[in-house]
Amino acid sequence: MVYDKGKVITGLVVFLIILLSPLWYNALSGKVEPSLKLSMPKEEKSCIEERMFMRSNHMDLLIKWRDDAVRKGIRTYKGLDGKVYRISLTGTCLSCHIDKAGFCDRCHGYSGVKTPKCWDCHNIPKEEGSKV
């Protein structure tokens, strides 16, 4: 048995309006999604591999680097155009991507990736308050 049918329906309508309001707000105000502005290297033109490859595969590449260096004793990596890099998370990746917070962390935050635990051990150069 339903009492106050009218009130229930009104309540439902109000609920739906509140639920969907962010969508309408975005649609009407022209804001489609938050924009992601990454702090990119200024001097260097390219990464160690193609940009799109790096975007989707850098985590696997870092794991390969880790296992090459630590488990196999391989300390160099041949990248794009045969350029040879020293395998080092701090010394190589962060030598170009000097703004770790504005690059790695910003994209991870945007993508909802938990900040990787690497930095508990791997050093971040020139970070404020660091002893490096």
Binding site: T90, G91, C121, N123, S130
Partner: peptide, 8 residues
């Protein structure tokens, strides 16, 4: 003094 070349 942290040596940046070697992880802690």
């Amino acid at each position: 003094k942290i040596n940046p070349d070697y992880p802690t």
